[in-house]
């Protein structure tokens, strides 16, 4: 760890952890608060002064989420759509990013970005007309394709930076050895940018997972994704904080699991994935 600089090495471990704690406290606290809300009876959720540790624990919120909504179906739908969107995004996005980085196709990069820049609300009516004429409303296909708008641009744009860092000499050498461009991309460039792939895959997955706008219009009862479940906790005349927080916690849970399972990759990718040897 030479690049870190000397001052950080002098920073004592205690100081480091104190600082890390200060930075991470807000993150942890909001989730802690969400979790406690999900376990509190309604009356204690809004109590003042608020109770941080001592409160009546109830699972009513969770029970309601599971009995009132097809939660597993929604979760499955979200998983299918987010995974599909990410895989498709990587399949078409990585070669595109490579090409843009290798052959300096800045214009293409901008074209891809346009998709992301168009305000989502403007998509709703034309997309509905479009996918209806293709008989694709209420299918995973339509959702995956539309979620590509939120996932693909970030895959491409972040990966451009990573591909740019791949030394051209390495690739040229491989080309001279008779390797095809596809071979160079697959065997030389891609292994070197693994950290970026993991990071962007997660981002793409997350953006798709949380997208709500398109699902309201293009999904039907069978393909509805999760975020709608949260909106459904706000009823006409009351907000049931426990149920709402329970739904929010449950929605975060799968992605948290993905993050935990992929943690080794993320960590390796983000820290040891030294691109330059």
């Amino acid at each position: 760890m030479v690049r870190g600089g000397a001052w950080r090495r002098r920073l004592s471990t205690a100081g480091f952890y104190a600082l890390a704690g200060v930075f991470m406290l807000p993150t942890v606290f909001v989730f802690y608060w969400m979790l406690t809300l999900s376990l509190k009876p309604q009356i204690e959720a809004t109590a003042y002064p608020p109770s941080f540790v001592r409160f009546t624990v109830t699972l009513a919120g969770y029970r309601e989420v599971f009995t009132k909504y097809p939660f597993f179906l929604y979760t499955w739908n979200s998983l299918v759509v987010a995974t599909g969107c990410t895989l498709l995004g990587l399949a078409v996005g990585l070669p595109a990013a490579y090409s843009i980085a290798r052959w300096r196709q800045q214009r293409l990069a901008v074209v891809i970005l346009v998709a992301r820049i168009i305000p989502g609300i403007a998509y709703l009516i034309p997309w509905y007309i479009f996918f209806r004429s293709l008989r694709m409303v209420d299918t995973y296909g339509a959702l995956i394709l539309t979620h590509l708008i939120v996932g693909l641009p970030i895959i491409i744009w972040v990966m451009i930076s990573f591909f740019e860092d791949v030394p051209a000499d390495l690739e040229d050498a491989a080309l001279i050895d008779g390797c095809s461009h596809l071979g160079v991309f697959w065997r030389v460039a891609l292994p070197l940018v693994k950290p970026g792939v993991v990071a962007t895959a997660i981002l793409s997955f997350v953006f798709s997972w949380n997208n709500f706008l398109f699902s309201v219009i293009l999904a039907g009862r069978q393909t509805r994704t999760l975020p709608i479940a949260v909106y459904n906790m706000i009823s006409y005349e009351e907000i049931n904080w426990g149920t709402l927080a329970a739904a929010a916690t449950l929605i975060t849970l799968p992605v948290l699991l993905v993050a935990l399972l992929a943690q080794r990759h993320i960590v390796t990718g983000l820290t040891f994935g030294a691109v330059k040897q």
């Binding site: 709703l124 009516i125 007309i129 209806r132 309201v216 039907g220 709608i228 909106y231 459904n232």
Partner: peptide, 21 residues
């Protein structure tokens, strides 16, 4: 049937009616 929160229901209604579905 589908039950959506009011705002989203109105949005869905608008889109469906606009598309004359």
């Amino acid at each position: 049937w589908e039950t959506l929160p009011e705002i989203q229901a109105r949005q869905k209604m608008t889109v469906e009616m606009t598309a004359n579905s």
